[in-house]
Computed example of a mutant assay.
Amino acid sequence: MERNWLDVVSLILIIIGAVNWGLIGFFNLDVISAIFGNMSMITRIIFAVVGIAGIYSLVLFWKLKTEE
């Protein structure tokens, strides 16, 4: 399967989200909230976009699984 730009952007966003959750779990440090404010509009948008990237990755994973 050929990858497009949306696959790459989705993967980058998922990595950012995973690193942020790891920092929350290990050090109680939410980098996104620290940079953009605690539950400010931009923080909520970033969290929503990362969530959408996660849903997109489920679809991508299903596509890859069915191609085998």
Rank of each mutant, 00 (worst) to 15 (best):
M1F: 07
E2D: 14
E2R: 14
R3G: 00
R3A: 10
N4D: 15
N4W: 09
N4Y: 12
W5V: 08
W5D: 09
W5A: 12
W5R: 11
W5S: 11
L6E: 10
L6A: 12
L6M: 13
L6D: 07
D7N: 09
V8G: 01
V9F: 13
V9L: 15
S10D: 01
S10P: 00
L11E: 13
I12L: 11
I12R: 00
I12A: 08
I12V: 15
L13K: 02
L13W: 06
L13I: 05
L13C: 10
I14S: 00
I14C: 05
I14A: 02
I14W: 05
I15F: 04
I15Y: 01
I15A: 12
I16M: 09
I16R: 02
I16C: 09
G17S: 04
G17L: 04
A18W: 04
A18Y: 06
V19N: 06
V19F: 03
N20L: 07
W21K: 14
W21Y: 12
W21A: 07
G22S: 11
L23N: 04
I24Q: 03
I24C: 03
I24A: 02
I24N: 04
I24K: 06
I24Y: 03
G25Y: 05
G25N: 14
G25I: 03
G25W: 08
F27P: 02
F27H: 09
N28C: 03
D30S: 12
D30L: 10
D30G: 04
V31I: 14
V31R: 00
I32F: 06
I32L: 10
I32G: 00
I32R: 04
I32M: 02
S33M: 09
S33Y: 06
A34L: 12
A34Q: 12
A34S: 13
A34M: 13
I35N: 09
I35H: 10
I35Y: 12
F36T: 08
F36N: 08
G37M: 11
G37T: 06
N38F: 13
N38E: 12
N38S: 09
N38V: 08
M39V: 10
M39C: 07
M39R: 15
S40Y: 03
M41T: 15
M41L: 15
M41P: 05
M41S: 14
I42T: 13
I42L: 15
I42A: 08
T43F: 07
R44S: 11
R44Q: 14
I45Y: 11
I45M: 12
I46G: 01
F47Y: 15
F47G: 10
F47V: 12
A48C: 03
V49I: 15
V49A: 06
V49E: 03
V50C: 05
V50R: 01
I52L: 15
I52Q: 04
I52E: 01
I52Y: 10
I52H: 02
A53W: 01
G54Q: 04
G54V: 06
I55D: 00
I55L: 13
I55E: 00
Y56C: 10
Y56E: 05
S57G: 06
S57Y: 13
L58D: 00
V59C: 00
V59L: 07
L60F: 09
F61M: 13
F61Y: 12
F61T: 12
F61S: 15
F61P: 04
F61D: 10
W62A: 14
W62L: 13
W62V: 13
K63M: 13
K63E: 15
K63C: 09
K65M: 10
K65P: 00
K65F: 14
T66H: 07
T66W: 09
E68L: 12
E68Q: 10
E68C: 09
